[in-house]
Write a protein that binds this DNA or RNA. Structure first.
Ligand code: SF4
Ligand code: SF4
Lengths: 157, 157
DNA sequence: TTCTATTCGGACAAAAGTTATCCGAGTCAA
DNA sequence: TTGACTCGGATAACTTTTGTCCGAATAGAA
């Protein structure tokens, strides 16, 4: 049970992108976080496919957020990078073995699957309640303005 | 993001064990669910290490639950088999790269880690609210008594 | 208009984690 | 005492994840 480590990078990139108005290249984002630029590119591709960011090609190109920061939830990023499939996947064990339940009785999900689904929903609901804007607000509150300005400048350069 | 498939088997085994008062061997449980007995044995070992089941060695040995069914939550089984580590693991990216935040400012977890932790807690809390006894009650309610009796008999034989 | 430098995108390996299996140490019943 | 049967941990095969690479497409400069 481990979610893709790229989720963390993706979230950081969203926060960074929100700060810089101009497109930022994948290479710059990778240098900022000191991670493999090739692999970070992969995550950005996933974000692009999900429609969270838009890529501009050619010179002075890069990535830009497609929506306002308060319209992007953590769940959006997690599902874009880590996938939408629930962690628990029922194998329909009850339909196998000597005491197999006939398929006609399996119209409704069993209690195990229901409980797992409920937990998964609670998890997603919790992630949906937080937006990128919330993260930024927290960062702005706990970081001195001078450092924030420096970061913005570094991204632009 | 995928939890170990053995969780499903482990849960089914707990339900089955609760039904049969006598010890049940791993081989019998495997045959019941039509899964690899070697691999199911591994999952039962995990349950044993976690203290959820107790193994009896030698002839007429097998596995028995250590507590009442209403004292075993789904979270217990999930954590025993899938591990207790949270799905999201912070790599402390903020302490790397040219704009690295000094370690002295990293005393409190960042908003991303907090949100992820909160979601993880909600997930676990949801799983903790359901017990093996709840599952059994649901099965008893939706399954004809004749089939239940047959299953109990099959386990005993 | 042409050309070049720069960008992203998907195809291609390496590593890790999961799944599946085996045989030996220990134990209980006969 | 015997003997067969149990679990337990150590051992391979596979799948998923992670990481890397180079080519197609683009925007700007000449
Ligand atoms: S009882 Fe639930 S978890 Fe088990 S096989 Fe049926 S649907 Fe899947
Ligand atoms: S900002 Fe949060 S998720 Fe990112 S490195 Fe820091 S603690 Fe980890």
């Amino acid at each position: 049970m481990k979610m893709s480590g790229g989720v963390e990078w993706g979230l950081h990139c969203c926060v960074a992108l929100s700060g810089a108005g101009a497109p930022v290249t994948a290479a710059k984002l990778a240098e900022l976080h000191d991670v493999s630029q090739s692999y970070l590119a992969k995550q950005l591709q996933l974000l692009s496919r999900a429609g969270l960011v838009r890529s501009t090609l050619g010179q002075s190109g890069g990535y830009v957020l497609t929506r306002a920061a308060n319209e992007i939830t953590l769940l959006d990023v997690v599902e874009a990078i880590d996938g939408v499939q629930p962690a628990f996947r029922c194998t329909e064990v009850r339909q196998r073995g000597p005491l197999a339940v006939p398929a006609e009785r399996c119209d409704t999900p069993c209690p195990i699957a229901r409980a797992m689904d409920s937990a998964d929903r609670a998890w997603r609901e919790s992630l949906r309640a937080v937006t990128i804007a919330d993260l930024i607000a927290d960062v702005n509150r706990t970081t001195p303005p001078e450092i924030l300005a420096g970061a913005r400048e570094w991204l632009r350069a």
